[in-house]
Amino acid sequence: MPSFIDFARNQYTHLPIPEPPANIKDATYIVTGANTGLGYECAKHLFHMGAKRIILAVRTPSKGEAALATIRSETGRKDVGEVWELDLTSLDSVEAFAQRVNKLDRLDAIIENAGVVMTKFQLVEGIETSVLVNVVSTMLLAFRVLPKLQESVGRFGIQTHLVIVSSNTSFQDNVKKHLEKLPGDIFDALSVKKSFNPLVQYPITKLLEIYAVHQLASLRPVSDTGVIINAQEHPKREAETSFKLFSPGLKAMARTVRSVKLKSTVPFLLLYPRDVPAWVTNETGKRTQKRVWDDLLKRLESLGHGVDIEALTTES
């Protein structure tokens, strides 16, 4: 992690906006958690860039429709955009959403931005809510839409993207130590009320997410599939609860999306992928990565949402 001075200085780094891909006018994109925050800004930017089809995946359709109406008004693209329901607290909702995705003619990218910060302990399907939403459901969706991304590569001769939005708050030493001390099954250990710590729970879910994405990308390399799979430790929007959790001082440093010319005032902090510590990718990190992966697949199987890894790892 950078020093605090470097971290504060980074908030004022100039961030140029890259040019859109040449084929974006034919492209289909999905953004989860698209009714608010950077998910909303991402969707709006895709409108500005001229993408043909943009799907806002949201938990509450009415909020999605309101967001879509605003985006259409601001971009002048009145006939573009769709709202699809996706509730990451329900694995059945994830499966239904994925089935709908697989009926699309084409998918260029899915940006899995949706996530949750929990200040109070709550179980859903026997799993602590932030672990379910940020890790289990997010990865299940990744597994289920990967075939459509691969199909689109072959059918349209394009390179597609599976992007899972993470955070390098997960790279704090106390998060690493907390994960290393968890006994037995990781998902069981993180779903015990007496050990729930809101200051650690969110970052550790993001660390589990990063390990899972790294493992998936190692099994399905872009050289084989044409699908770029990555966890993006991006300029993370700090929700009001997140600011309260981590530090009120962070809000004072947060810049706005307007400052990088995306025409909005959503606060976020700049967190850089170059700060990935060695312990994430070294031999110890690889063992932890395999542990996370095995426990994740075991949990999905036990919940009736198993993943055929052999099918995922067979070249198309």
Rank of each mutant, 00 (worst) to 15 (best):
K120L: 03
Q201N: 09
I210F: 09
V133L: 08
I164L: 15
I204D: 03
F143D: 04
D92M: 10
Q159F: 02
N134V: 05
E125N: 15
T89I: 06
A109L: 11
I204Q: 14
L104Y: 12
T205H: 07
L140D: 00
L207Y: 07
L88C: 01
Q159R: 14
K181F: 02
Q122C: 04
Y211E: 00
V192P: 02
V133G: 09
L149K: 03
P198V: 06
G157N: 13
F121K: 08
K103S: 14
I110V: 15
F187V: 01
F121Q: 05
I204E: 12
S137H: 00
S191K: 06
A109C: 12
Y211C: 01
P203N: 04
V94G: 03
A96F: 06
L123E: 10
D173Q: 15
A212Q: 12
T160L: 03
K193T: 04
V135Q: 05
L149E: 03
L149A: 03
S137N: 00
V222K: 13
V213Q: 04
N168D: 15
I204M: 13
D105N: 12
S167P: 03
I111S: 01
I210C: 02
I204S: 04
S223H: 01
E95W: 04
L199H: 13
K103F: 02
A212Y: 10
L104N: 09
K177C: 02
D188H: 12
E112R: 12
Q150D: 06
F121N: 04
D185F: 12
N134E: 07
L107P: 06
E125K: 15
V117G: 04
L91D: 03
G154A: 14
L149H: 04
H178I: 00
T129I: 14
G154P: 10
L104A: 07
I111L: 10
N197P: 01
V213W: 10
N102E: 08
S191P: 05
S218L: 12
S90D: 11
D87F: 05
V153E: 06
S170W: 01
I210N: 08
I158L: 07
T89Q: 08
L182A: 11
T138A: 14
K206E: 09
V165T: 14
R220F: 01
V124L: 13
V131E: 00
F196C: 11
A189Q: 09
L216A: 03
E151T: 05
L208H: 03
Q172D: 10
S223K: 12
V131H: 02
I186Y: 06
L146D: 07
A189K: 08
D108V: 00
D92F: 02
L179K: 12
A109I: 03
P147D: 08
L132H: 11
T160R: 06
V117I: 11
Q201F: 01
F171H: 15
T119I: 08
D87T: 03
S152K: 09
L123Q: 09
L219N: 11
K103T: 14
K176A: 08
D92C: 04
E125H: 14
L140E: 00
N168H: 13
L190D: 13
V175L: 05
N102S: 08
G126Q: 05
F156P: 08
I127Y: 07
I158K: 13
M139G: 02
P221I: 04
V222A: 14
S166V: 06
D92N: 11
I210G: 00
V101R: 07
L132V: 06
D92T: 15
S167E: 03
V124F: 10
V200P: 01
